[in-house]
Design a binder for these strands. Structure first.
Length: 832
RNA sequence: GCCGAAGUGGCGGAAUUGGCAGACGCGACGGUCUCAAACACCGUUGGGGGCAACCCCGUGCCGGUUCGAGUCCGGCCUUCGGCACCA
């Protein structure tokens, strides 16, 4: 195929322009980002890397193209901008594809990466491909394993037996964050609980710090989601003395409550069926009932268990404890409305002041004494729990205290007596990272009969994934079936030992990838401190808010651990974060193959060109909002760029200075339009308003077009306006801007030019069109000098026939004059 | 149930601090070029009334504040998102 030389191109042919410049950019290394450039500050712009599922989705374009525009704009503003790209390449889909037949996960993934890299390159983004990462490459996962070992050493990784969320379809356990409404986030299968030995990361250690968002320039709703997810509750821990020690010697039950003020209203204690003491407490006469209940609870799915509609059930253990505050004898029950994983797994029940306890008490005929008096309380039994504010009654020495005050007073009293005290608990659970699957980074641990849990020495990393394994969904990792993988010498004593066969959750890989880009090629460490100091933390992160309580939380946890290990600067990984919306199918529903509403980016690029497609995605609407992809609308953007091409390439008739055929005012106005656009656009980019950025450029193009059609144009003004238009276009449509820049004699590359400053003098308007209102209704418009005084405006306006007619015979009560904005005559009744 | 965000033409959307509602674009309608067409070009386009100049109505609903409300306040309705037997 022959490429036409550029003088032959009369018409805008995006495909030719784009191919030519992509090749040129690559050849000239325009997007290579050194760690330091004298005189330029570093700026780390990052958009979430894609999962290697096979094809670049339109959603990827929607996320990445505007991010690229912003990165380019930062570059023009004088920063040395790092804008890297890579692949999130481990994970279940690769393995599921292998199980279905055909390809090995490695081959499947590598083929996808090849395809997606090509698709990404068609975007014309300023990615520095020399820093590409692939999380499934040994050169990368070696360091994921290394991170695991650092966390282990810091006491942030531990192994424990626990009830884990098991997806029978994916044949693996899932983290809490990956269970949505009791179902597997990935395949919608109902999750069941399985008790297993698993590896956890101690995210809860940083719970309080993770709640600290004050320094972060993030969307409020994302911060809120994280706050809700972490779920900090303040209250008190209270110890209840067992009447008789349990069979294991335990003498107390500890509960967590947010309502220590209701402690005098406790009429029973409830343990979760899974509570460690249940077995040791239960009396022989209640044993059969309790065992049956515990067993039934174990069979209940989380969905059933968490349903609030279900009637409350429970069983008495046969045992009592004592409320130390008032000596009351309190029966201990078990019930599945109490969760073993929250607080102490036991609650003190106050039926009068907690709706759940109230329902339970009604069910089993338990007392509900009122200890916080509702207003005008007559002593009659309550119809529902009273949970509002009130004053304490029947609470001994605390009677008469407002209940909020009583919370503190009783908690303090408990602490004094050694019966408990103030306490804080979190909804957040530690992060379960074990996966019983093949396509992930092996957990670098060896189990030795003699030495126990032994970390693999760093020098022996990576623990490589063997290629030849059986992909049978057996419920244990395929690695367990590979004797060659499992059998190993203990690194400590040399005896025969076994490797851990589970792999890590892929969110491990993505929790630190942004730390790798600064030092992507380093074979000696994950990220060297100088590289980390050069780039971290990320200045601008963009990506979907669906990651609010997963990736974005995990990455923050990781970064804090990295900080504590002295590896990275600062406390937070992402200084600024912007959450773009989700792009939907033309029918307004989520794009999916099964719905048949998928719009392939490749097709759009082929038909319209990458620049048109990029600009259209930005133009669609507010970036944070997303919305349906309207296949027909893109033609408007295409028309715009063709028109801009025409305006830039086909010069107008130029007038000569002083000959009178060029109007000085028109020349000034053309320049002013360009500078006003520049001011608007700069503000739009600061505020991520990509849609109005594009709209402003369209308006400028229309103004240029009108000026050209209107007759002779001042050459200086024309050139200046067009120069600004090209520079402003560069972030959004990098190929076309480069082409127009070159055609108009600009030095390579437009992307290395400085973003211009608007000329303040041109932003001032000599005259303004002032709306004239009478009683708040628009009646006229009048052209006045900017900033003109009120008296002059009045004189001018009152002389206008339309206004004079309105004012005739009526009294002007007031005149509101907002300079350059509006004038409003407020009339009273008819004047005499 | 609790928390959060959003409701503007046929459609996507725009509108500093309260100050010309509907920028920009799609679609539609009319026209030009063309044998024909559009990924071309020009024009019209919130609704209603009027020959016209113009007038009235209009930003989810009801009320309020104000000279003036898409924007502020109170009360609802709808949609979307998060959390939810979390003590």
């Amino acid at each position: 195929m022959t490429t036409p030389t550029r003088t032959e191109i009369k018409r805008y042919r995006p495909q030719d322009v784009e191919r030519r410049w992509r090749e040129h950019w690559a050849a000239s290394g325009l997007y290579r980002t050194p760690d330091h450039v004298p005189g330029r500050e570093n700026w780390y712009a990052l958009t979430m890397f894609p999962y290697t599922s096979g094809d670049l989705h339109i959603g990827h374009w929607f996320a990445m193209a505007p991010s690229d525009a912003l990165a380019r704009w930062r570059r023009m503003r004088g920063h040395n901008v790092l804008f890297p790209m890579g692949f999130d390449a481990f994970g279940l889909p690769a393995e599921n594809a292998a199980i279905k037949g055909s390809l090995h996960p490695y081959d499947w993934t590598m083929a996808n990466i090849e395809r997606m890299r090509r698709q990404l390159q068609s975007m014309g983004a300023m990615f520095d491909w020399s820093r590409e990462v692939n999380t499934s490459a040994p050169e990368y996962y070696r360091w994921t394993q290394w991170w695991f070992l650092q966390l282990y050493r810091m006491g942030l990784a531990y192994r424990a037996a626990a009830n884990a969320n098991w997806c029978s379809s994916c044949q693996t356990v899932l983290a809490n964050e990956q269970v949505v409404d009791g179902r597997c986030e990935r395949c919608d299968t109902v999750v069941v609980q399985r008790r297993m030995e698993q590896w956890f990361l101690r995210t809860t250690r940083y719970a309080d710090e993770l709640l600290q968002h004050d320094e972060l320039d993030w969307p409020e709703h994302v911060k809120l989601m994280q706050r809700n997810w972490i779920g900090r509750s303040e209250g008190a821990e209270v110890s209840f003395a067992l009447e008789q020690p349990a069979s294991d010697g335990t003498t107390e039950i500890r509960v967590f409550t947010t309502r220590p003020d209701t402690l005098f209203g406790v009429t029973f204690i409830v343990l979760a069926p899974e509570h460690a003491l249940v077995d040791a407490l239960t009396t022989p006469s209640q044993r059969a009932a309790v065992d049956a209940y515990v067993e039934a609870a174990a069979r209940t799915t989380e969905i059933e268990r968490q349903s609030t509609e279900r009637a409350k059930t429970g069983v008495f253990t046969g045992v009592y404890c004592v409320n130390r505050l008032n000596g009351a004898r309190v029966p201990i029950w078990i019930a599945d409305y109490v969760f073993s994983t929250y607080g102490t797994g036991a609650v003190m029940a106050v039926p009068a002041h907690d709706q759940r306890d109230f329902e339970f008490a009604q069910q089993y005929g338990l007392e509900a004494p009122v200890v916080i008096a509702p207003p005008d309380y007559d002593g009659a039994p309550l119809a529902a729990a009273y949970v509002e504010l009130g004053t304490l009654v029947a609470s001994g020495r605390f009677d008469g205290l407002p209940n909020e005050e009583a919370k503190r007073a009783i908690a303090a009293h408990l602490a004094e007596q050694g019966w408990g005290g103030p306490s804080v608990v979190y909804r957040l659970r530690d992060w379960l990272i074990s996966r019983q699957r093949y396509w992930g980074a092996p957990i670098p641990i060896v189990y030795c009969e003699a030495c126990g849990i032994v970390p693999v020495p760093e020098a022996e990393l990576p623990v490589r994934l063997p290629y030849d394994v059986e992909f049978l969904p057996t419920g244990q990792s395929p690695l367990a079936l590979s004797e060659a993988f499992v059998q190993v010498e203990c690194p400590q004593c040399g005896a025969a030992a076994r490797r851990e066969t589970d792999t890590m959750d892929t969110f491990m890989c993505s929790s630190w990838y942004f730390m790798r880009y600064p030092d992507a090629q380093n074979g000696a460490t994950a990220v060297a401190r100088p590289a980390a100091d050069a780039w971290l933390p990320v200045d601008q992160y963009t990506g979907g808010a669906e990651h609010a309580t997963m990736h974005l939380l995990y990455a923050r946890f990781f970064y804090k651990a990295a900080r504590d290990a002295g590896l990275v600067p600062g406390d937070e990984p992402f200084t600024r974060y912007f959450a773009q919306g989700q792009i939907l199918g033309p029918d307004g529903r989520r794009m999916s193959k099964s719905r048949g509403n998928v719009v392939a980016p490749d097709g759009q690029v082929e038909r319209w060109g990458a620049d048109v497609f990029r600009a259209y995605l930005m133009f669609l609407g507010p970036w944070e909002q997303g919305g349906p992809y309207d296949v027909d609308g893109i033609v408007g953007v295409s028309r715009w760029l063709h028109r801009l091409w025409s305006v830039a390439v086909e010069a107008p008739a130029f007038g000569t200075h002083g000959s009178g055929d060029v109007d000085a005012a028109a020349a000034r106005e053309l320049r002013a339009v360009a500078h006003r656009t520049l001011a608007r656009v700069t503000d739009d980019l600061v505020r991520y308003r990509m849609n109005t950025y594009i709209a402003a450029l369209m308006e400028l193009t229309n103004a240029l077009h009108r000026a050209r059609e209107a007759g002779p144009v001042d050459r200086g003004a024309w050139d200046e306006a067009l120069r600004l238009a090209t520079l402003m276009l560069a972030p959004a449509c990098p190929h076309l801007a480069e082409e127009l820049w070159e055609r108009r004699g600009g030095a390579y590359s437009v992307h290395e030019q400085v973003w211009p400053e608007p000329d303040a003098a041109l932003l001032e308007r000599a005259t303004v069109e002032l709306p004239v209102q009478v009683n708040g209704r628009l009646r006229d418009r009048v052209e006045v000098p900017a900033g003109v005084a009120e008296v002059d405006v009045r004189a001018l306006v009152e002389a206008r026939p339309r206004i004079a007619e309105q004012l005739a015979g009526r009294r002007v009560v007031r005149v509101i004059y907002v300079p350059d904005r509006l004038v409003n005559f407020v009339l009273g009744d008819a004047a005499s």
